[in-house]
Amino acid sequence: MIVVEDLHRHFGGFRAVDGASLEIKTGSITGLIGPNGAGKTTLFNVIAGRLPPTSGRVFMDGEDITGLPPHELFAKGLLRTFQIAHEFSSMTVRENLMMVPAAQKGENLWNTWFSRAAIAAEEASIRAKADEVLEFLTITHLADEKAGNISGGQKKLLELGRTMMVDAKIVFLDEVGAGVNRTLLNTIGDAIIRLNKERGYTFCVIEHDMDFIGRLCDPVICMAEGKVLAQGTLAQVKNDDRVIEAYLGTGLKNKVKSG
């Protein structure tokens, strides 16, 4: 379980995250919605150790993980994907997956020179795992393609695939559906649900597509202006006055209510 307590992240005078407190329950697929500029991605960046918080705490299963660097969070099973796909463009899709497992023997220089057999054995098992992931995501045909050449949606799938190379506990997906067509989005949705059911991954998903959120997420958390506005099922959150106001402004709120 992730607990965020009164988190602030300011950029100069701009309060991107302004006292956000929330919980992500183990085993859930929690949705994080809110208008553009609500502070969702900044919140992700602070939780995932890419930005230090101005103040506030983040706990993972009771342990204080505030401000830990990303590679230490990775070791604890906290993984994230990026709003704009961060593929390793000069490497093949398969290599993108194979680089993920931690503390590979072959990452030690000495072993690369003098323990080739041990590395080869390890590589074979990592490669098999990567091929499994490719099949799960139905992109086996892209295995040897340079990651820089595949489509934006496929890159999003690849990012999800990277999180499957290790036993993650919680995965933060930042707009995994942005710029992805319906069919591919459904594939991604299926993959998320399967990972959640079969492997027990916890997810926290930022997404603007409400159909996608409605299909996957319970609960849904809505943010605006750096604060958490409402929390509950999508239906509850959608009908919350403050949420409607945040999305549409005060003037339109009354029209929506009456109409």
Binding site: A48, H71, F88, M99, Q104, T112
Partner: peptide
């Protein structure tokens, strides 16, 4: 030898995208 090994792969990943390499657990 170093370059054509998981070490080399990791270095290329870091060069391609530091942020993603960090997020994938590389120091």
């Amino acid at each position: 030898r170093a370059l054509h090994s998981p070490w080399g792969r990791m270095m290329r990943a870091i060069r391609d995208n530091e942020d993603a390499a960090r997020a994938m657990g590389k120091n």
